[in-house]
């Protein structure tokens, strides 16, 4: 009944968005910066660090960065599904600790060949529980996964009795291949990350399921009115998340053939940071696997670059903070068509 501005061509939401954009060129510059801003920042970073330390762009250094980002990256791939569907998953950190501890314990008990599928099954069960609560019972995902963060941490401690887990015979197992091995000179963690990114990127961009994830996150009610079983889509997003977490747990356990109970602590928020850096909206409906990979790599290169110029690892926290705020702020400002005034 109302003639809202959205009823007319060329205008989207937000009452004030157009008023300051007096010329198309300014607006276009703003749009361009908004869309490509994070890539531009990434390139600037790389140039800066390369000038500061010529080792930065050395192939082995790049390989090292991707390798050390791989675990976080694999987790971020799964959480990307959850975020695009309009939810959060804060439980991935403690879930990763759980999978690492479980697979290490079972390794000595039943051997790696059985331990890995058993661990995957248990982790997927946790993801299914998340998905059941958020998808089918429609509970708030922030609180549910916050509760699961705590509950899974408790579960891990109960399982391990609070002790670190180590493989008894570190020499005589092939289990280290997932974290330490190389194929054709490329570290296996990188291959896993790349392979999963390619598969999940295709799933999200090219399959009916991926389309439904965007629809559910963009407008869950309209998706339901289009016959999409929203609960099921959300459920599978959480399953996807736990699948990636199990893979990350496997890589983590395999890398050091031992693990602490808190190895994944805090990763849930770093994962979100990477996804946000990639430009996904926490409101759902937007984001891509490619963007998430970029976000993960930015985090990794910042950390590496700061180390190379001689700063401590924790400086990256401060830098990440500033970059996240700037990235999201510029994104918001550009969408309002006010980027230039925001910068000025």
């Amino acid at each position: 009944m109302t003639d809202a501005p959205g009823d007319r061509p060329g205008r989207t939401s937000g009452p004030r968005q157009e008023e300051e954009a007096t010329g198309m060129s300014k607006e276009q510059i703003g749009r361009f910066l908004a869309r490509q801003g994070i890539l531009i920042a990434f390139v600037l970073f790389i140039i800066g660090f390369t000038l500061a330390n010529n080792r930065f762009l050395a192939p082995d250094n790049i390989m090292g960065v991707i390798r050390s980002s791989a675990i976080l990256g694999v987790m971020a791939l799964g959480v990307t599904f959850v975020v695009i569907s309009g939810n959060l998953d804060l439980s991935v950190g403690s879930m990763m600790s759980f999978s690492a501890i479980v697979v290490l314990d079972l390794h000595d008990a039943i051997g790696p060949g059985l331990a890995i599928p058993a661990m995957f099954a248990m982790t997927l069960a946790l993801g299914a529980f998340n998905g059941f609560l958020v998808g089918y019972l429609k509970l708030n995902s922030l609180i549910v996964t916050l509760g699961m963060l705590s509950a899974i941490h408790g579960l891990t401690l109960t399982y391990s009795g609070g002790k670190n887990m180590d493989i008894a015979d570190k020499e005589g197992t092939w289990f280290g291949v997932f974290g330490q091995g190389t194929i054709l000179g490329i570290p296996v963690p990188i291959l896993i990350f790349a392979l999963l990114a390619a598969i999940l990127g295709t799933v999200l961009a090219k399959t009916p399921f991926g389309r439904k994830v965007y629809a559910v996150g963009g407008n869950g009610v309209a998706a339901t009115f289009s016959g999409i079983r929203r609960a099921r889509v959300v459920f599978f997003c959480y399953l996807m998340s736990s699948l990636c977490v199990a893979t990350a747990g496997l890589m983590q356990a395999s890398r050091s053939l031992g693990s602490q109970n808190t190895v994944g602590q805090g990763l849930e928020l770093e994962v979100l940071a990477a996804i946000i850096l990639g430009g996904a909206s926490l409101m759902g409906g937007s984001g891509t696997i490619f963007k998430t990979v970029i976000g993960v790599l930015i985090l990794g290169f910042i950390q590496n670059g700061l180390l190379l110029v001689g700063l401590q690892f924790y400086v990256q926290y401060v830098v990440t903070w500033i970059i996240i705020i700037l990235a999201v702020w510029l994104d918001i400002a550009a969408k309002r068509g006010r980027l230039l005034s925001a910068i000025a």
Binding site: G6, T202, K206, T207, P208, R211, K212, Y214, A215, G218, N219, V221, A222, A223, F225, S226, G227, I228, G285, S286
Partner: peptide
């Protein structure tokens, strides 16, 4: 609120109910 996913493009909105059937192999 019920009819459209406003942030999606025209084509994707239109084919949403039959997206499971509009496939070539596993892909849309």
């Amino acid at each position: 609120t019920q009819g459209l996913v406003l942030g999606m493009n025209c084509r994707d909105n239109m084919t949403l109910p039959q997206i499971d059937d509009l496939t070539a192999g596993p892909f849309v």
